[in-house]
Computed example of a mutant assay.
Amino acid sequence: MRAKRSLLGIIGVVVSTLTAVLATGPARAAVAPGPRTSGHAHTATAVSPTISPATDVSYRTDDQTFTCGPGNLCLEVWDPTVSKWKIFYLYNCNRYYLSNWHGDGYYLNKQTGSVTSYLYDANGNVLRAFSPPQVGTQNWDPVWSVRNC
């Protein structure tokens, strides 16, 4: 009987811990303020920007161009771990959560139809809404999530 109670206690602790971790939402890394050169943010510890759920990505240097295929919302952010622009191709309709997105970047909306995309802050407030075709610059610091439909 004692082993049964101990096992139930361990399961209770694990469930409580998982609940606390999952309730906090996506993590955002703190960035040490620093000088900006060529529009790229510099951090004390370089961390690659990510998005969840995952999407196709590619990289380019300042002197290269890229194509954003029809049906995509393409987002571009500086990746300090490789010193290149990291491009995320958002095709599937979803709410995407950003991690380690800092500094100025770009968006290119090549979606088809009459879809509206949204950029949200940490509180879920809309920072920007736009429909295709649309291209622009964006400070990614206040953006926590993106909905491409």
Score class of each variant (00 low, 15 high):
39 G>W: 03
68 C>R: 00
76 E>N: 12
49 P>S: 14
127 L>S: 09
80 P>C: 10
126 V>A: 12
20 A>K: 02
13 V>S: 04
27 A>T: 08
85 W>C: 11
67 T>E: 15
103 G>T: 00
17 T>M: 13
17 T>A: 14
5 R>F: 03
18 L>V: 10
89 Y>T: 01
110 K>R: 11
124 G>K: 02
52 S>H: 11
84 K>D: 14
14 V>F: 10
117 S>P: 02
135 V>Y: 07
41 A>T: 10
25 G>P: 02
38 S>D: 11
99 S>P: 03
103 G>W: 01
72 N>R: 02
11 I>T: 10
19 T>K: 01
47 V>Y: 11
146 V>H: 00
147 R>G: 11
35 P>R: 01
20 A>T: 11
47 V>I: 13
66 F>M: 13
113 G>V: 01
11 I>L: 07
47 V>Q: 06
2 R>K: 05
79 D>Y: 08
64 Q>P: 08
51 I>W: 07
128 R>C: 06
1 M>D: 05
9 G>W: 00
72 N>C: 10
101 W>K: 00
91 Y>H: 11
17 T>P: 06
92 N>A: 15
80 P>A: 09
111 Q>P: 02
140 W>T: 01
37 T>K: 06
60 R>N: 15
97 Y>T: 04
111 Q>V: 03
52 S>Y: 13
7 L>F: 06
124 G>D: 06
27 A>S: 14
117 S>F: 00
88 F>D: 02
138 Q>V: 04
108 L>N: 15
42 H>C: 09
7 L>N: 01
135 V>Q: 10
19 T>L: 15
39 G>V: 03
135 V>T: 11
23 A>P: 02
58 S>F: 07
63 D>E: 12
33 P>R: 00
109 N>I: 01
123 N>S: 07
97 Y>I: 06
104 D>Q: 13
110 K>M: 14
36 R>L: 04
15 V>N: 08
125 N>K: 11
109 N>M: 10
90 L>N: 03
85 W>H: 12
99 S>G: 12
122 A>D: 15
36 R>N: 08
1 M>F: 01
102 H>R: 02
36 R>V: 09
142 P>F: 13
117 S>R: 00
101 W>E: 04
38 S>L: 10
100 N>P: 03
49 P>L: 09
58 S>W: 05
102 H>F: 02
20 A>E: 07
106 Y>A: 12
21 V>W: 13
68 C>V: 01
134 Q>F: 06
106 Y>K: 05
53 P>D: 12
20 A>M: 09
10 I>K: 04
137 T>A: 15
6 S>G: 05
93 C>I: 05
73 L>T: 04
141 D>H: 08
140 W>N: 03
93 C>P: 08
27 A>F: 13
93 C>D: 14
67 T>K: 05
113 G>M: 05
115 V>G: 07
108 L>V: 15
74 C>A: 14
1 M>I: 00
106 Y>D: 12
125 N>V: 03
101 W>M: 05
8 L>N: 09
118 Y>F: 07
18 L>C: 13
117 S>Q: 00
50 T>D: 14
36 R>I: 06
65 T>Q: 13
110 K>F: 08
32 A>E: 15
43 T>L: 07
91 Y>T: 12
149 C>E: 07
95 R>V: 09
